[in-house]
Simulated scan of single mutants.
Amino acid sequence: MLTALFDHLWKVAGRPAPDAPSASLTDRERALITLLARRHTDASAAATLRISVRSVTNLVRRLMDRYGVENRFQLGLALGAALKSGPPAPRPESPTANS
């Protein structure tokens, strides 16, 4: 059922909007998303990253909030659209004390 829904949405979807958020992920977020995409559970991803399961849950929740989605499936779609819309925006340089 979920696969059929995805297939339907994929067929009717257009190109990502130019204002789609770029996938600017931290190294930890990128590592977590990679593991989850490879079908790791929260527990196995946490063990691989040497963080707690609660940290995994919190990272996923923050990403869902950042991308304005309600579940992990929608997060995957949003991240996919963000990655397809172009390279991540460069991170602003942090000001130094000597500036």
Results as ranks from 00 to 15, higher is better:
M1K: 06
M1D: 04
L2K: 10
A4Y: 10
L5D: 03
L5P: 00
F6M: 08
F6C: 01
F6V: 00
F6Q: 06
W10Q: 09
K11Q: 10
V12A: 05
A13Q: 13
G14S: 15
G14D: 14
R15M: 15
P16I: 14
A17V: 09
P18G: 08
P18Y: 03
P18C: 01
P18F: 04
D19G: 02
D19Q: 15
D19T: 15
A20I: 15
S24F: 00
L25W: 09
L25Q: 06
T26M: 01
T26I: 03
T26C: 02
D27H: 12
D27V: 12
E29W: 00
E29T: 08
E29F: 01
R30L: 09
R30C: 15
R30N: 13
A31H: 10
A31T: 03
L32K: 06
L32I: 02
T34L: 13
T34W: 07
T34S: 15
L36V: 01
A37N: 14
R38T: 07
R39F: 07
R39P: 00
H40W: 04
S44T: 11
S44C: 00
A46T: 00
A46G: 01
A46V: 03
A47V: 00
A47G: 08
L49H: 00
R50Y: 08
I51Q: 03
I51D: 08
V53F: 05
V53K: 15
R54E: 06
R54Q: 10
S55V: 06
V56N: 02
V56I: 06
T57Q: 12
L59T: 03
V60Q: 14
V60P: 04
R61E: 06
D65K: 08
D65W: 05
D65S: 10
R66H: 11
R66W: 04
Y67G: 08
G68P: 05
G68C: 04
G68I: 02
V69Y: 04
E70D: 12
E70V: 13
E70R: 12
R72M: 13
F73S: 04
F73C: 02
Q74P: 00
L75P: 01
L75T: 02
G76Q: 08
L77M: 13
L77D: 07
A78G: 08
A78L: 12
G80E: 10
G80S: 15
A81F: 12
A81R: 14
A82F: 05
S85Y: 10
G86M: 03
P87K: 13
P88K: 02
P90G: 02
R91T: 12
P92D: 08
P92L: 00
S94H: 08
P95R: 11
P95I: 10
P95V: 13
P95M: 05
P95Q: 07
T96A: 15
T96V: 12
T96F: 06
A97L: 10
N98E: 10
N98G: 03
S99K: 09
